[in-house]
Amino acid sequence: MFSGLIAIAIIMCAVQAIRAARLLSSAVWLAGASALTALWLYILGAQQPAVIELSVGAGLVTVLFIFAISISGEEAFTAYPRVPRKLALLLVVGAVALLAVDLAVASGMPRAVDERAVSTLSDTFWNARALDMLVQMVLIFAGVLGVLNLIGHEEIKEVETPGEIQIAQTHLPQVVEPENEELLRV
């Protein structure tokens, strides 16, 4: 029963994260959903993902969101949705219902239960599925390079020679003007 209540709470947090008018409260509701998901995973018996979900999902990601929101600022636009709400609702209900019906039909399915000895998670993650982890390291490398490229230039420029900064300044107007033009043309 407990896990059912948690599941309902998670979904409500998710709904609130979308409905909240302020971005900051959205991020906090998302953190709540994360923390409850961690609890749900813990009850399921998946302790390690629960811990990671709590520290990374509820902790790190929330910090990042708050950081991004504080830089970009709250921005309220009189929101009319991108896709008409009713159409979106119809699409979602359709997709979810299709899946639900499929799952309900198959609920009597025989489950393939493995008879082999249960191995530990750390063994699975670090040894049996080490390749997953190695590829993740490549992915993190790519992500770091990309983020450096997106937001790292200015900082690097400032620690370099004074000449570089001058150039950056003299170039700035030239960069901005055509962009405004583009805006007008569009």
Binding site: P49, I52, G57, L64, L121, T124, F125, A128, D132, G143
Partner: peptide, 24 residues
């Protein structure tokens, strides 16, 4: 499917990967 540790390992990987995607 009786392979809790396999599912948990996948869940861990997904959390890591999608955190990177969120940062990007």
């Amino acid at each position: 499917s009786g392979k809790l540790e396999l599912g948990a390992s996948l869940a861990l990987s997904v959390i890591v990967v999608d955190t990177v995607v969120a940062v990007v």
